[in-house]
Design a protein around this nucleic acid. Structure first.
Lengths: 116, 116
DNA sequence: ACTTCGCGTAAGTTGAGACTTACGCTTTTA
DNA sequence: TAAAAGCGTAAGTCTCAACTTACGCGAAGT
């Protein structure tokens, strides 16, 4: 997951992912779409593969690549969870503040305890 | 958006975002939660701020930081859109393939045209 | 006014990463 | 079996980014 996040942070790798989302393509065809050398793309493909973001299929001398929908879905869920968990915490914090208002107003020590 | 993606790719910055999601905290309190120096955290806060991921409020000598829900929401939507657009393309590609099956089986030139 | 507090910033170091060219490996073809 | 096709990998360069220590700056206390 960590590897996937760093992988999609790179614009070129996102472009590759979009290129091979709905169809598998051999490495050479992928490289021909960009203005960098073929080894550069090969190294990007390695990063994507180690992050489980693409599949590799070898056929003869060619290697076909294709985006893995399951890992992309997991990435999407990760963002949603980060969002949802935070909403939970926001809600909890609001309730906590409310309860605190009903108690006697806080001593100076209260602020220290809220932090950390 | 590019800046935000690279910002959340760093684990330490994600930890900071979680820390100040539901409550604002002064820079020093944030730094005390980590085992790196205060300037290091200050630089992380700068990156987050330039990506519009956090707000800064100055009060006296302190600077309070807090995660911006709107930018986080935009980030979440970005992932969803990347996913949805790709689903659209997948659907379209499937229809295209289906239509192609109904035509005469492809000549060798067809494969060339499918690529690029 | 002088000191202390709570910061950010400057400058330097180190490691990672996005590239390049050169090379080697495996599979097909002549 | 020799050559060519289609790749990945090694090695080197260069930029960037995550840290460190040293310093500076404005606001608050004394």
């Amino acid at each position: 997951m960590e590897a996937a996040l760093k992988a999609i942070a790179e614009p070129r790798r996102r472009a590759i992912l979009r290129l091979i989302w709905d169809r598998e393509l051999p490495a050479g065809e992928i490289a021909s779409q960009f203005d960098v050398t073929r080894p550069a793309i090969s190294q990007h493909l390695r990063v994507l593969r180690e992050a489980d973001l693409i599949d590799e299929r070898r056929e003869g001398t060619r290697r076909y690549y294709r985006t893995r929908p399951d890992t992309m879905a997991a990435l999407r869920r990760f963002m949603e969870n980060m969002w949802d968990e935070s909403l939970e915490r926001l809600k909890f914090a609001a309730e906590f503040e409310e309860a605190k208002q009903k108690r006697a107003s806080g001593s100076p020590e209260d602020r220290k305890r809220r932090i950390h």
